[in-house]
Write a protein that binds this DNA or RNA. Structure first.
Lengths: 136, 136
DNA sequence: GACCAATATACCCATTGAGGAATATACAAC
DNA sequence: GTTGTATATTCCTCAATGGGTATATTGGTC
């Protein structure tokens, strides 16, 4: 868990100081995603992704919705000014990093495949019920 | 030390995820400072300040100049776009934190005392020779 | 019920990092 | 040289973190 006595800002930076977590946040800035899509794009083992998501969630940088098997992670709708400022800063910085750009490109391809009828996860029913959460 | 295989951005966030280091950077954004002034403002033990400065220096977030006993720390003049963006973001966020504001206020008082003739460290000779580094 | 897929958790190990106490270094004044 | 001041480093302990393997949980389908 962690003691979480630090101030908001420190907790935010703690979340940002791992490469995998940055990649995850970079993806989520383009919309909600289920764990399996994050895994697929990052090409990282399931445990690793899951644990980083847990870390981010414990510190309020992401939130989850569930639909059957699937957990849909998304950035919180209401954010502290600190979090908002840092996410925007990260978004700018991400433009200069090749891996971040590649991740976003993969995300785009994934969405196109889905539009073309590829098997979908989570099920379309959930996404139409929760359009705000639909990133696919 | 550290292996430093991480990307620039991660290294920056690693520096930012400690409260003491944030306080130091917040001060240095207002101009160069010698270690003893940082100590005095933060009211933290010398070892602690010194080690955090070393950490920051090893990762390129601060640089040092020396003058006799004194080491004058300052932000690097030339910064990567990532560092620059994050320092500006930090500056914005710092406005909302009471301790950060208090630190800056103490810094102001310290400078006033110096103007009024209080004992100066580092010596004025160094500062006039290096006006760009003079924060006092 | 059995079985499978998506995700989370437990446990272990190695590394990092923060903090303190004591000591060392570097430089100035004498 | 000695002494004193400013700063850095070494050694220690402890907590947090990242990654992996194995296992558990949860919610479907049959």
């Amino acid at each position: 868990m962690g003691i979480l006595v630090d101030m908001k800002l420190v907790r935010i930076y703690q979340c940002l100081c791992d490469r995998t977590r940055l990649r995850i946040l970079n993806l989520l800035m383009h919309g909600p995603l289920c764990v399996c899509h994050i895994q697929e794009i990052l090409r990282e083992p399931q445990v690793k992704v899951s644990k980083h998501l847990r870390y981010l969630r414990a510190r309020g940088l992401v939130e989850v919705g569930k639909s059957g098997h699937w957990r849909i992670y998304h950035l919180p709708a209401r954010r502290s000014s600190e979090l908002d400022a840092n996410l925007r800063c990260l978004q700018d910085c991400a433009l200069e990093d090749a891996e971040f750009r590649a991740d976003v490109a993969k995300l785009g391809k994934l969405r196109n495949k889905i539009k073309d009828g590829a098997p979908l996860c989570p099920p379309r029913s959930f996404l139409t019920r929760n359009p705000a959460l639909c990133g696919c």
